Every structure is written in C-alpha cells, then in structure tokens.
Simulated scan of single mutants.
Amino acid sequence: MEFKTHYLSPDIKLSNFEDKPFRTEVLFEHHMLIWFISGETKIVQADSIHVFGAGDIFLIPRNQLTTVINYPKDGLPHKTVAMHLTMPMLKEFYTKNPPKARLLHSPGIRNFGKHPLLESCLASLIPYFDLKDGLPENLASLKIEEAINILRIIDGDIDGILANFQEPGKIDLTNFMERNFMFNMPMEKFGYLTGRSLTTFKRDFKKSFDTTPQKWLTQKRLELAHYRIREQNRKPSDVYAEVGFENLSHFTYAFKKHFSYSPTADSH
C-alpha cells in the first residue's frame, strides 16, 4: 500500500494514494478544505453520503464524525491538496475581519464544485511541492488567508462556520448515539462530542441503553448492515466500511455469529 503525504507547511499537504481503496474514520479537529486532483472519495456522515471526484472542492467542518473511503480511479491515483483552517489562525483572521453571518452549530459539508477562484488558489500551491524546503511560513499563511477570503466571497454563510469557536456542550446522548453509531471512533471521542468525560459517558450510556457501548454499537452496526444488504441489495464488501467495521473478515464473522448465517446469503 503506497500512501504518501507531502507537507508544504503544517497546514497544507498533498496526499497521493495509489493502491486499493483506503478507509479511515476521522473527527477533524480543524476545518479541512480539500481539492481533488484525481481519484474518488466517498464520505459517509450520519445523515448523508457524498461522492467527490477529480476537480471537486469541498470543506469538511471540524468536530464532525466522518468515514472517508478513498479510491484510485481511471488508472490515476487518489490525489488531493488539503488545507487545514485551524482555530488559532481563524481567530486571528476574524479579529481583523468581523464575521458577517450568524453561527451555524450543525453545518454539513460545503461543496464548491469546481469553483474557478478556489481552484486557482489551490492549484497555485502545486509548484511549491517540488521545492526542497517547502513553502515559507509567511507565504503559507498568505495562501490560507487567500482561501478564506475566497470562501467568504462565494459562500455567504461561511462565516457562520469558520467563526464558530465553541466547543461541544453536553447534549442528549441517546439521540446522538442513534445518529452516529456507524462511526468507529474511540469512546473518548464519543464522550467529547456529547460534552462528557469518558467515565461520565459510560455511566450515562448504561443509564440510557442498559448495556455497554461496545455491545450496543456492534448490534446497531450489524442491524444497519443487514438492512442495506437485504433491503437495498448492497454487497457486503460495499457495506461493511459504511457501518463501522474495520475489515470484511471481521464483519463477516460478527454478522454470522449474530444472525446465524453469512452476509453473502442475504445479498442474493
């Protein structure tokens, strides 16, 4: 598996992935602006599935549970330029440039298609990846500030996302887990997103569901997989990653143990 990441600066990187599909589950600490050069990505969130390909530009807001499945396509590697829009940088930016939109507390992915202004900004970074010493820090900051200014020009709501510096507060655990059980995250992350310490999260979970988080998560993921295979005629190999399993063999074993037959029997 060949997966290369080349950092121009701590917040700007070029990723190149040439092998079979690569899946990861992430909770982005910072907003991520991504430009696709080649390949394809499927992004699974609680309420939606997005597919992005060559030329697409999109923003993944911070603190969102996301499954990312990357594929090479059409004989070309999965290749992207990604820019981290960090909290310290955004706080400094908005001190000088007051936000013009109200805060959005639950924003989804912002898809900018192949917008020429953003494409021009991000494409201008490519030659710098060939420099031995990368991009000077002051120039990296200018390029990120340019991207933020372009986002503000083309998206009237973007300040409501980028200028929101609040951390997750304590929220209803039952509703959150029912919406996000398919994300294979450490319990500490589930606790953080519901405004709880790990100890409090486990205690509240027991009160809400009368079982352990791991047992409940496994059952919910298997039930969702069963539905997608049987009712939506999906293949087990296409489903296991979407519902939170690390690999197909573990999923097959757990499915058979729970339902007493193989998932391939459901897919016919």
Rank of each mutant, 00 (worst) to 15 (best):
I109Y: 01
E40Y: 09
K20G: 06
F22V: 00
E137M: 09
I69K: 06
E40M: 14
I144T: 08
S260W: 02
E246K: 14
D159G: 03
T67V: 07
A254D: 04
S197L: 03
Y261F: 14
I37N: 05
K235L: 15
K132V: 12
Q219A: 12
H226Y: 14
I161Q: 04
F93Y: 15
S48Y: 01
A265F: 15
K257F: 02
Y71Q: 02
R196V: 01
I154H: 05
K96R: 11
A254Q: 13
G134S: 03
N180I: 01
P72E: 09
R228Y: 08
F245K: 05
I34G: 02
A147Y: 09
L142V: 07
L14F: 12
S262D: 14
P77M: 10
M185Q: 14
N233V: 03
F3H: 15
Q219W: 08
N111M: 00
I126L: 15
L27V: 14
A265K: 15
K79H: 03
A101L: 07
I109Q: 00
K4I: 07
L27T: 11
L139K: 13
V243A: 05
Q214F: 04
V44Y: 10
Q166M: 01
D266C: 10
I161Y: 05
L222M: 04
L122E: 13
M1V: 02
I12W: 02
N16Q: 02
K4C: 01
F3D: 12
Y128G: 05
D11C: 01
M89V: 00
F209A: 04
K206L: 13
M1R: 13
L248W: 00
A140T: 04
F209N: 10
Q45K: 13
E246W: 05
L173I: 15
E167V: 07
K206P: 00
V239F: 11
R196G: 00
K256C: 01
I43V: 14
T252M: 07
A147Q: 08
L173F: 06
K79G: 00
P263Q: 03
F3V: 01
I126N: 07
L8V: 04
E178Y: 04
L139T: 06
V26W: 07
L118D: 13
K170G: 05
M87Q: 13
A265Q: 15
S38H: 07
T211H: 05
P21T: 10
L142H: 14
K207V: 03
V243I: 11
R234H: 09
I43A: 10
N97V: 10
F22K: 10
P98S: 04
I229L: 09
N180C: 02
D11S: 12
D266P: 03
G75N: 09
S38C: 02
L135T: 04
A46R: 14
K20I: 11
F36L: 09
Y261Q: 10
H268N: 13
L142P: 07
K79C: 10
E223S: 12
A123M: 12
H258E: 13
F181V: 07
I49P: 00
Y128M: 10
H268F: 13
E146Q: 11
T66Y: 01
N138F: 14
I126E: 11
P263Y: 11
L118K: 06
H6I: 12
D172E: 15
